[in-house]
Design a protein around this nucleic acid. Structure first.
Lengths: 332, 332
DNA sequence: TTAGGTCGAGCATACGTATGCATTATGCTA
DNA sequence: TAGCATAATGCATACGTATGCTCGACCTAA
């Protein structure tokens, strides 16, 4: 008795058939206004809301898209998350979230997501293994990689224009008189890392320079902190550090200032990537590349909901160099 | 042909009935080992995975719990989110996430969540309106408020021991010689705010003191920043500020240091609440109250999955004062 | 007057799974 | 050898919705 009302209950209350209820509530033109009104009233009175589960079984659509996120603790992703949930909500869809626990890979959690019959899938901040590849091929759930790409164009992907942006960073640093550039990377097995590294390096080369040193920080604050310490434990320290992500840049900055008692930017310059909220806080005032989250998320959803089933595309959205105060300027 | 295999397909392939497949895969003891083996092989070969939607329709359980989060941008919540997804995943459950867009209230997004028949619901960082109350009463979906509570005990809630912790903060500040305490609040219409305010004030009173000034920062960095500026635009500034949440404390700290050129803690002391990651970064080194996220999330899930249907409870988990460097000490 | 058309609504079924009950085969007891 | 318990499986149905098809009533045009 305390159970939820079904469309059958509404039908009975309104003195019509269940199918009429279904049609009336989806505003089918075959049902007369008069009947619709009656049904809507009955539905209201019974507190009826459609059972999405039953609907999904029938229509083969769940109105849910899955988001697999490997790195929630990176402050870049809460923004991503928020943009997704909001955009989806305005489209009448919901977000099924799965985070990949430390020590697990995406492949481990993916199946449980696919069982829920999500209409589409977004995978972000993940290492794209061949196993993952295989699973996605079998299930025909449309998938988009966000902030990651694969070389063979076998999966949809939406990324920032990592290469171009990194070239711009290098060019900026050179222009401002830096010569000994180091890089703090994330995970070398991600496309993001490779692209940013490659763009940065190629532009340095063009100026007759090269990356003088390189460390990895795993895209965490602590990782960036330690990586910076390692860079400065060697013979000749760099005069500028390009951090592949902002969180690591913050860690590096703190390490330099508070552990090594160096001044930023006077003694060392630092550039990040992402433009997380903290980058603009005066304590850090970080020069960085802004990722166009809104646009990236928008494009990814456009791919997922495109009525046509095109072959996989790789979309690059331009980033923007945000110049703040963590780079020493005018040295020329 | 490219469609996903169903249990019927598996049955056909294994030469048994669909019901036998269903039972075999759920390891029903009535099915012989031999048959099970045969069925498992067939399932494997066809790449069969159960359709959770159909299963849900039958069992009335979706294995999803809904999480409604109003304040994802607050760095406290990514941790909450991660703990939830991980704990749930290890229980074989999934998280349906809904974030409340700016300008909307929980009531606006709740119905869309309930339609998905979630097995349980967690609502966090939200203003509990009477309308929300009503909706939750009608639907019998079990609900827990996280980090919020209601006065009449009509909903389950799990919170930090806000009052006790705030008393401890006040007592600590007094002990260290502070006399002019100000408070930067979040939203006065939340239980969290009221409890922390009340605990702080009552302890000050016990020492013959009172809150000398009070501003609101809406639990954002920018809000904390501006609130701090307002506090110091008046005749006599405070010598200590208790910020109801860490994000605001960071904002306040930056405002004091970089805009007002004050020293923390030498000129002003600051205490936060939450212990977000950034609180421990040397740039901030914030004295704060650590919320036991792991425990809170654990308790909330215990309530949701309790087989018995007890009346609503209000659970308070103790916090821990983490003393770092943002409070001037030894002034006595 | 009648054939054909339109409108409004109901009937029946399908989606993929779980499960109560019936059914058959098998072994055991008296 | 009859009778009965037990094991192993199949049959049939239900979950709540959407939708193709059918059907009746009424209207219009020839």
């Amino acid at each position: 008795m305390t159970d939820r009302a079904t469309s059958v209950d509404v039908a009975r209350a309104a003195g019509v058939s269940q199918s009429t209820v279904s049609r009336a509530l989806s505003d089918d033109k075959r049902i007369s206004e008069e009947t619709k009104k009656k049904i809507r009233k009955a539905a209201e009175r019974l507190g009826y809301t459609p059972n999405e589960i039953a609907r999904s079984l029938q229509t083969n659509k769940t109105n849910m898209i899955g988001l697999i996120m490997a790195d929630i603790q990176n402050p870049f992703y809460p923004t991503v998350l928020e943009v997704y949930t909001q955009k989806l909500h305005s489209m009448g869809k919901r977000l099924l979230l799965l985070s990949v626990p430390r020590g697990f890979e995406v492949d481990d959690v993916l199946p449980s997501m696919l069982q829920h019959q999500v209409d589409g899938l977004v995978v972000t901040s993940a290492v794209v293994s061949s196993k993952l590849h295989k699973i996605l091929k079998v299930h025909k759930t449309r998938t988009v990689l966000l902030n990651r790409s694969v070389d063979d164009f076998s999966l949809n992907s939406v990324c920032c224009e990592n290469t171009t942006a990194s070239i711009e960073v290098a060019s900026f640093l050179v222009r401002e008189g830096h010569r000994r550039m180091a890089l703090i990377g994330g995970r070398p097995d991600t496309s993001t890392h490779r692209e940013r590294h490659q763009g940065f390096q190629s532009e340095l080369n063009r100026h007759g320079l090269d990356i003088v040193d390189e460390e990895y920080g795993g895209n965490t604050y602590e990782g960036g902190y330690q990586a910076a310490l390692r860079l400065f434990s060697k013979d000749i320290p760099p005069d500028a550090i390009f951090c592949i992500s902002d969180v690591m840049a913050l860690g590096a900055l703190d390490a330099l200032r508070y552990e090594l008692k160096l001044r930023v930017p006077e003694d060392v310059s630092i550039v990040g990537f992402d433009d997380i909220p903290a980058a603009s806080w005066p304590s850090y005032n970080l020069t960085t590349v802004r990722q166009p989250v809104e646009a990236m998320v928008g494009r990814s959803l456009a791919i997922l909901f495109d009525p046509e089933d095109y072959p996989p595309v790789s979309i690059k959205v331009p980033g923007e160099l945000i110049i703040r105060g963590s780079v020493k300027t005018g040295a020329t």
